[in-house]
Each structure stands twice: as C-alpha cells, then as structure tokens.
Amino acid sequence: MLQRLKQSSSFWMILACFCFGIMGVFVKLGSVQFSISELVFYRCIAGFVGILFVVMLQGNTLKVSLPMLKLHMSRCVAGFVALLFYFYAIAHLALPTAVTLSYTSPLFLTLITIFYLKQKPQGGQILAIMIGFVGVVLLLKPTFESAQWQAGLLGLLSGLLSGVAYFNVNKLGQAGEPAWRTVFYFSLVSSLGAAVLMGLQDEPLTMLDSRNIWIVLGLGVSATVAQLAMTRAYSRGKTLAVASLAYLTVLFATLFAVLLWDEQLHLSSYIAMALIAACGILSSALKMNKSVSLSP
C-alpha cells in the first residue's frame, strides 16, 4: 500500500501542498525579522546543501547537455523571481490571499500550454480561464483599495512565473531529468540570486540567534520537502491534472491562518478564492486528451 502511494503523483502533490502551506507560515513569521531576499536565501540554501550532500554521497553527476542546461536555467530564473514575488505577497497580504494569487499558476499554465502547442483551445477552457480571472479581480479588489496593491500585483505575477516554471519542470521530467537534479539547479541559482540581492540591500543583514534560528530551519526543511515532492509529482504525472491538486495549498494556508492569526477575510474574498480554485481545476480537467502533450 505504501509503495503504491509512493508511485502516485497525487500523493506527492498533496504532500507538497501541505509542506508549502507550512512554508508560508514560516515566511509570514520570518518577514517580521528578515528581508525578503534573506528569506528566499535561507529557503533555497537548505535545499542546495542537502541535495549537494546526497550527490556527493551517491556519486551522482551534475553534468547536463547544453540544451538541457538552457531548460534548467529557464526554469530556475522563472522560479526564482516567482519566489521573490510570492514571499513579498505573503509578507504584506493575508496568507490565504497571497497563496491564492500565486496559485493562479494552473490558469497561466493552461494558457502557456495552448500557445506552446499552437492549437485551438476548447470552449470550456476559455470559459474556465475567464471565470478564473473574474475571481482574481474580486480577490484583488479590496487590495487595490488599500496600500497593498503592489503586493497584490506581485502575487499575481508570481502565479504567471510559476506557470512558466512548472511548464519547464514537466519538460525536464519528460526528457528524463531526475527530480533531485532539477531541484539542485533551482536551489543553486536561487541561492546565488538571493545572496546578490542581500549584498545590495540597504538595511543590515539579520543575525541568526536562538530567537529566529527555528524559523530559518523550519522554512528550509518544509520548503525542501515541498520542492522535492512537487517536482516528483509533475515529473511523474500529467502536468495539467497534477496542477489541479495545487489548490490544496490554499486550503492548508487558510486553516493555518485561522488557527495561528485568526485571519478573517471578507465573504467576497472566499468566493473569489473558490472561483479561482474551481476554474483552475476545471481548466486542468479540460485538457486536450492526447494532443495536449508537453513534448517539445
């Protein structure tokens, strides 16, 4: 039974969603003491060090062909910028709102897939995408009426860039790239990028001590487990089908926000979140059978 669960892309995606929800909690807690670039750095360096240790222990190779390296870099850059925007949104918005905006990625993923294949989309897909973005407008409406409009826009952009990153993750999986190598290159590039931003920031770096080290450790561990599980889910399953399960992160984030901070959103926000989730799942379910293959 356990072995069958380990072979299921759904199992890995549910695990990823739960860990991503926990990661969001640590980002929210850490944003009080750390800058966004510092949080991204600690989130990524943990995965880099852990996977590098496994690579050295098992003697795996990090060498890839030039075309594969370009695909890795495309995934890494999109994922890194998406992560920066996502953490900024978490720090400045209610946790469920920030997570929902980032998890518009399946809607964007559907659009990216359609344009990449240059095929006419189904009517249901168009309807799902349109209704989904109506939900985005509803969710952003109170944000634009406050000083949080920038965080709202960046949260939405994180969803777009995440869609690009997931598209490339699937292409890497189809090309035979192991999940650990995909995560390794992402962790390496993101750690270096965040380190550069940390060196450029005006405020002094936050020193680690007994009052905040647990936040860094929790962020690193939860993010690394989530990243590995998500990568395995996308590489083993059909991208558009697996993407629909990503909305479980919204559920986990909402539960954590209520339990830890007693966050209460307006009714229209919950309706908007439900619309976005439902239409993301619908757009994933209405994939174009065998013709919707992400093969290059």
Results as ranks from 00 to 15, higher is better:
K118V: 11
T104C: 15
A274Y: 08
G193Y: 11
A229F: 03
V54R: 12
S158D: 01
D209N: 15
L101S: 00
L240A: 05
V221Q: 12
V54W: 08
M56V: 13
A147D: 15
T104D: 11
A78D: 11
N60S: 15
F87L: 01
L251N: 04
Y166C: 11
R232D: 10
L66Q: 13
D209G: 07
S102K: 03
G220V: 01
A128M: 02
T113I: 14
K141Y: 10
A246Y: 10
S210Y: 13
L251E: 02
S244G: 14
G220D: 03
Y88S: 02
Q150H: 12
F20L: 08
Q201D: 04
T249F: 14
L282Q: 03
Q33N: 01
M68F: 08
V40M: 02
L294G: 10
V81I: 09
V32M: 05
I276E: 00
A272T: 13
V99N: 00
Y88I: 05
K287N: 13
I36S: 00
V64L: 09
L57I: 14
Q58L: 15
A253F: 14
S158Q: 05
G123K: 00
Y166A: 14
S190K: 06
L188Y: 09
A175P: 06
L188F: 09
C279F: 06
F48P: 11
S222R: 07
L111H: 06
A241L: 14
Y270E: 03
A246F: 12
S210W: 13
T97W: 02
L228I: 14
I271R: 02
L205E: 03
S102W: 13
F144K: 07
F186N: 10
A226K: 04
I215S: 12
I90Y: 05
A285H: 11
I45D: 01
F11M: 00
L156M: 14
V183R: 05
I131S: 00
G163E: 10
T110Q: 04
G47A: 08
V225K: 04
G199E: 06
S8K: 00
A195M: 02
T100H: 09
H72M: 11
L107A: 11
A165C: 08
R4V: 14
L255I: 15
V64T: 08
A274W: 05
L282M: 10
L251A: 02
Q201N: 04
L117S: 07
S8G: 05
L157R: 04
Q148E: 11
L83Q: 07
G220R: 02
A229R: 01
A179N: 00
L275A: 12
I131F: 11
L197C: 05
V134Q: 01
A165G: 07
M230G: 04
A89P: 10
M13G: 04
T104W: 15
I213V: 13
V221H: 11
L138H: 05
E177I: 06
L188K: 10
T143E: 09
G24H: 07
M288P: 10
Q33I: 08
L200S: 03
